[in-house]
Design a protein around this nucleic acid. Structure first.
Lengths: 355, 355
DNA sequence: AAGAAAAATATAAACGTTTTTATTTTGATA
DNA sequence: TATCAAAATAAAAACGTTTATATTTTTCTT
């Protein structure tokens, strides 16, 4: 590193004013030129761009923000369940953030993350973001069957995209997983494998997708003409601890389940742990089908059948949709429901003993 | 909800000017009063605060930002390894974000997250954050033995806190885990259990803490007067896939390891998966000691001995340190190295057969 | 009670943009 | 070549703060 290469370049960053001095045009013309306004002559536009490039001009986000009232922030509400003892939970959110961030790349928007502890906290945070103009758009998940955030944002015409759908008939941009379909497919597969007593490890019922999954579960039984084992549906947070406790409780009932349909990786790990400590072998004594969005099920011992949907893809779509929403696009056009792909790692008929 | 309760309150948010009109003071006095300047009389200060409370005044972040040149953003660099197929990796980062966010709560700072794909990307992003003033402070991890980000930020006097220490003797705020100690303790425990051929599943060597762990590993052997099994040290990314492949490769060498020291949960899961598919039983054929920061090891089958340090605590400390750094506190005072706690879930002597 | 010092408040400028309005320049028409 | 419309550019105001400087009011001294 040569001596002349002074590290602390204390030259203040060039502004629109700098460009005005260099080129001789007024700051108004500079501004318009940089924003590609048609009123400025092509020749001068090029001149100004050249100068901007030469001095390395970068629009000052704060100046723009103040003048336009925009924040150039895309906010994401990240749920962190206040589970006891720092439970492994919500880990898939890094993938969501990664996806959103990818979509935002190359735009003027930055991603700000707001950690929320529960639904009420989420609603309050959403309100603050809107009221204080902390962001120009919002992404959130953990959608309730009746979600106050959606009501608020639709009402205020604030751009947002939700990961999940509420049960109200409103127009809003969203991305979701076809949980009804997935739960149906998992249950139907187990029924076809000969299982009759099937447990559903489900999220709390106020969450919209808990209902979706219940619907799919019920439909599979109905279509098979078999009474649904609704007494084997358990509901709770999505922690590993919950998965483990559920198994231990469920295997104590009079007619215990021979199969489990699980909701996510962390709960599945708990279920497997519970089975292991009770001495039950997956694929021999009991079958487990999981839903997975971070590709971890392949590493469970033994590997289990999974519905897999990389959540980063959802994250990317969320980001793309939000950008469009912030540009005023009609939310009706911004909806996508993904169907996870089935990865069969077990026969799910107790090693052939059931069928 | 009554009809008079108009939802879209289109009253523009109150500004300092609004308060000036209400109270009759000038905007300068308002500003100073709100900032608790001593030059304004206590009586008027109270008057102004009362008015502010009444109209629900909230300082406009954009105005402040422009005037002060601050962004009120605390940036966090979140690594997302571009691992094949959306591998389960870096999941603990939600906990870090949660911790940082907790520390920031109640302050004027928001947390912005910048996803980085690799070390070079991280350095470039750091540079951009400094040059464009995208944030007032920076938090990052994945520290290299010689990390250009630390060099840059120290040089530019930009406030930051690193999660991890580089190998240069510089003054900077940091939080770290005592990896040398943990690796030493794990290795010593296995040696005491009778193991002689011990594998170390380690991160890439350019990462600072990979060296720390190697140091601890070597020291344990040296103190025991035994030749270190350095041929059993493998290095790679921290993915589950890597853990699995490592085991499969290591068990094929002439004198295979009887024990494994693992670096994180995701790699550990891969190691267990590899052992399982080779028919080796943990606690019987082989012992595994892991490091864990999201409390998941308890759910592995069988549960394994772990060094546990909830990473959310580190996150919180990172945030607290950054706040102090941004207020100009001396970085020398802002250092903390955590020692994880040992959770013994196995005897780690092959079920007693070794000792 | 006058004067000076101290305290309290006000005025004005500035941060870097965008946008409305005004002015100048160019080109076309007669 | 004078007139006018259109095109190009400039001037000025505004966004909501903070802060340097100026002014007014109060308090203290004598």
């Amino acid at each position: 590193m040569a001596a002349h290469m002074h590290k602390t370049r204390r030259t203040p960053a060039p502004t629109i004013k700098t460009l005005a001095e260099i080129t001789g045009y007024s700051i108004a013309t500079i501004s318009k030129a940089l924003r590609d306004s048609p009123v400025v002559a092509p020749v001068t536009r090029d001149l100004i761009f050249k100068a901007a490039r030469e001095v390395g001009y970068q629009a000052n986000a704060r100046g723009m923000a103040l003048r336009t009232g925009k924040s150039f922030q895309a906010a994401v509400l990240m749920p962190v369940t206040a589970a006891r003892d720092y439970e492994w939970d919500g880990v898939e959110y890094t993938q969501v953030l990664s996806g959103v961030s990818q979509a935002l790349e190359g735009t003027d928007y930055r991603m700000s993350v707001h950690v929320i502890r529960d639904a009420a906290d989420g609603a309050e945070t959403a309100r603050r973001i809107v009221d204080q103009g902390l962001a120009d758009g919002l992404i959130f998940s953990g959608i309730l069957a009746d979600d106050p955030r959606i009501d608020l944002l639709v009402d205020q015409h604030f751009p947002f995209v939700s990961m999940g759908r509420c049960r109200k008939d409103l127009d809003y941009a969203h991305v979701d997983i076809d949980n009804e379909w997935a739960a149906h497919a998992a249950t139907a597969r187990l029924l076809a494998g000969g299982h009759r007593r099937i447990a559903l490890v489900n999220p709390e019922r106020r969450l919209s997708y808990a209902l979706d999954r219940l619907d799919g579960f019920d439909r599979a039984f109905r279509e098979a003409g078999i009474a649904a084992s609704t007494d084997l549906v358990v509901e709770g947070d999505l922690s590993t601890h919950f998965g483990r406790q559920s198994v231990i409780a469920l295997l104590q009932v009079a007619e215990p389940p021979t199969a489990f349909v699980c909701i996510n990786e962390s709960t599945t790990l708990g279920v497997l742990s519970g089975l292991g400590s009770l001495g039950r072998q997956v694929g021999v004594d009991v079958d487990v089908i999981a839903y997975d969005d971070i590709n971890v099920s392949a590493y469970f011992t033994p590997p289990i059948t999974t519905f897999y949907q990389p959540i980063e893809v959802l994250g990317r779509t969320l980001g793309q949709f939000l950008l469009k929403r912030m540009e005023g696009e009609d939310p009706k056009a911004l909806r996508q429901v993904f169907r996870p792909t089935l990865i069969e790692r077990q026969p799910d008929n107790l090693g052939g003993r059931l069928v």
